[in-house]
């Protein structure tokens, strides 16, 4: 009797969310794998042709796809470095004993709250107008020109804006790590006459390893999935020089109406993201055991 009653409560508490979750996430995910084996233009009245694995084998000869994949890797690696270097610098700055640290920390974090789409538009203006005028004013026209118009520089513009957006977020995680370092360790090293650089290299960095792992992989996963900033800052241009993975998939499906082929790319995208994230979990777990 009691058991059945408990079962009733279990159903009452969990089923509403499970229904929503299944409809929104689980079923579409399975459908997505199914669609990736078909050729279809997305129009309900038109036939879906089963093509087996053809959508997947076609990927290897698709230069736009391979370019986009390479760009995404390049973007992610560059962002990984710049976001974390800057975030760590910020975190070290705002954990000093200065009185302005709280204000500075709040200001460094601020860009993260503004949505990616809006950030992209703000920076579009800065690159196209403010940079030009700053170039005229300072004479550094080789640096201050409209990066967004140059196929070589547009990707760096994207890295730049992404760094501006994410540095504050990663800073918060590094701060949590730094504050977790026991004070006596730092004091002991100061008494022993260690320089700031020694302390950083021999004490702070090794003790920050867990924070490093989290930040590196969060940047990796956010970088890989970037969409909003990409859309509003460059829109993939000029000449597809900044069409990253997520935007490429969107364009393939909804732009060129290649629903089946685009979906195969989306499935590959999932596999890459899952592999990266799972290796993160694996490495974090292994490190936890060591400590």
């Amino acid at each position: 009797m009691k058991l059945r009653k408990n079962k009733g409560w279990f159903i009452l508490f969990t089923v509403p969310l499970l229904i929503i979750f299944t409809t929104v996430v689980l079923i579409p995910f399975v459908m997505g794998i199914y669609y990736s084996f078909f050729r279809w233009d997305g129009i309900g009245a038109n036939p879906m042709t089963f093509v087996g694995l053809e959508n997947y084998t076609r990927l290897f000869g698709d230069n736009r796809f391979l370019d986009s994949a390479w760009l995404t890797v390049k973007f992610t690696i560059l962002s990984l470095i710049s976001v974390n270097v800057i975030a760590l610098t910020f975190a070290l700055l705002v954990t000093t004993k200065l009185r302005t640290v709280n204000a500075a920390r709040a200001m460094f974090f601020m860009p993260n709250l503004i949505g990616g789409l809006i950030l992209g538009y703000i920076w579009q203006f800065i690159f196209s107008d403010a940079f030009r005028i700053m170039g005229e004013l300072t004479g550094f026209e080789t640096l201050f020109f409209n990066w967004l118009l140059s196929p070589d520089y547009a990707l760096y513009a994207l890295v730049f804006v992404f760094t501006w957006q994410m540095a504050g977020y990663m800073m918060i995680i590094y701060i949590t790590g730094i504050q977790g370092i026991p004070n006596d360790v730092i004091e002991a090293s100061t008494i022993d006459g260690a320089s700031y650089w020694d302390r950083l290299r021999k004490i702070i960095f090794p003790l920050l390893m867990p924070a490093f792992t989290i930040c590196l992989f969060l940047t990796l996963s956010f970088g890989f999935k970037i969409y909003d900033v990409n859309l509003s800052l460059t829109g993939g241009g000029p000449i597809n020089s900044t069409e990253l993975f997520a935007l490429h998939i969107y364009n393939e499906i909804f732009g060129y109406s290649r629903y089946g082929y685009g979906q195969a790319k989306a499935v590959v995208f999932f596999i890459i993201v899952a592999a990266v994230t799972l290796s993160q979990v694996y490495m974090t777990k292994r490190r936890e055991v060591e400590m």
């Binding site: 969990t14 979750f21 929104v24 996430v25 579409p28 995910f29 969409y227 989306a266 995208f269 899952a274």
Partner: peptide
């Protein structure tokens, strides 16, 4: 309950772009 919980966690790996098209199809069918 363990299976349900693991399913929630596992799906956090799925990027939105992987689901968006079939999601629209399903919503349309519903």
């Amino acid at each position: 309950s363990k299976i349900i919980f693991m399913t929630f966690i596992a799906t956090m790996l799925i990027p939105f772009q992987t689901i968006m098209m079939p999601l629209l199809q399903l919503m349309d069918q519903i």
